[in-house]
Amino acid sequence: MNELLASTVTEPCIIVDHVSKRFLRRNTHSFKEAFVSWIKRKKVRADTFLALNDISFQVGNGESLAVLGLNGSGKSTTLKLISGVLEPDDGRVFTRGRVAGLIEVGAGFHPDLSGRENVYLNAAILGMERKQIDERFDDIVAFSEIGEFIDQEVKYYSSGMFMRLAFSVAIHVDLEILLVDEVLSVGDAPFRAKCYEKIRELTARGVTMIVVSHDTKTIRELCQRGVVIEKGTKVFDGPIEEAAAYLAR
């Protein structure tokens, strides 16, 4: 099944090629324990945790893919590797086209800057020029529905306000690839529905999308295909209905 699907993907814009990622896991967890170990000149033991183990898949141009798995399976790590936030320890990740990622609520926002200033900062990071941001600023604020708070420092924003503004900036960029983690789980239902409608509009225009979500109803509506990860290993790659059934088994 996996080999067949990989062979039928034409013009891939995302390639995850035998990727592994390790994180350092220390056995001393608290500051107190670390301080006592330092006083006693005792070494803090550490080992590595294999978050992803030899993961491979491709995503075709304009395809919508869901990455599924239980908490701690490696879904978010996969998305961060594709976005470039993390680098693999083994293997390679290739992307073709401009990538906009909604990986964590408030990621990339400077807490001491206002919402307005963060719009310009984030849009610039995503590759927009000042003139483009000026032209789309009103639309970004209107979609986010936080107009009265746009000049407030974002450190006072709720997680829902963070998500509204971050999502609105991302979808107003001329993007080819959209990465969406669980951030859309925050906020109220009407705004989430508006976000999903916008995602459908983007995919209809040919934008490639990878989404991480526990909401199988949503991923069935938004995605064509699903990759299931268990304990850092890819265990299924196929049609979204089969992927959701595999996860729920």
Score class of each variant (00 low, 15 high):
Thr28Asp: 15
Ala166Pro: 11
Thr10Pro: 03
Gly101Tyr: 08
Ile199Thr: 01
Glu129His: 12
Lys194Ala: 06
Lys198His: 00
Ile103Asn: 01
Arg26Cys: 07
Ala244Glu: 02
Ala166Thr: 12
Gln58Cys: 05
Leu70Ala: 15
Gly106Cys: 02
Asp17His: 10
Gly147Asp: 14
Val141Lys: 09
Ser73Ile: 08
Leu126Pro: 05
Glu135Cys: 01
Val235Gln: 11
Val154His: 06
Val36Pro: 06
Leu24Asn: 11
Val141Leu: 09
Gly232Val: 00
Ile82Asn: 12
Ile150Lys: 05
Ser20Ala: 09
Ala34Lys: 03
Gly74Lys: 05
Ala204Cys: 01
Glu117Phe: 13
Leu24Ile: 13
Ala244Asn: 00
Arg41Val: 10
Asn2Val: 08
Leu70Phe: 13
Ile171Arg: 00
Leu178Thr: 05
Thr28Cys: 07
Gly101Trp: 05
Arg205Leu: 09
Lys42Leu: 01
Val173Tyr: 04
Met1Gly: 15
Glu104Lys: 01
Leu175Tyr: 06
Val235His: 14
Pro12Phe: 00
Asn2Met: 07
Glu201Trp: 03
Ile199His: 02
Val119Tyr: 08
Glu197Ser: 14
Phe94Pro: 12
Asp139Leu: 15
Ser73Lys: 15
Ser7Glu: 10
Glu104Ala: 05
Thr28Gln: 09
Arg164Val: 02
Phe149Met: 12
Leu86Val: 05
Leu247Ile: 08
Ser73Phe: 13
Gly62Leu: 06
Ser185Glu: 12
Ala243Met: 00
Gly127Cys: 15
Ser56Lys: 06
Val19Phe: 07
Gln132Thr: 04
Phe143Pro: 08
Tyr196Thr: 04
Asp90Leu: 14
Thr208Trp: 04
Gly115Arg: 12
Ile229His: 04
Ala244Asp: 00
Val180Ile: 14
Ile55Gln: 04
Arg116Val: 07
Glu153Thr: 13
Ile125Thr: 05
Ser7Phe: 11
Ala123Asp: 10
Thr10Gln: 12
Ile210Asn: 01
Val207Phe: 01
Ser159Ala: 15
Ala100Ile: 00
Met1Thr: 14
Val212Pro: 01
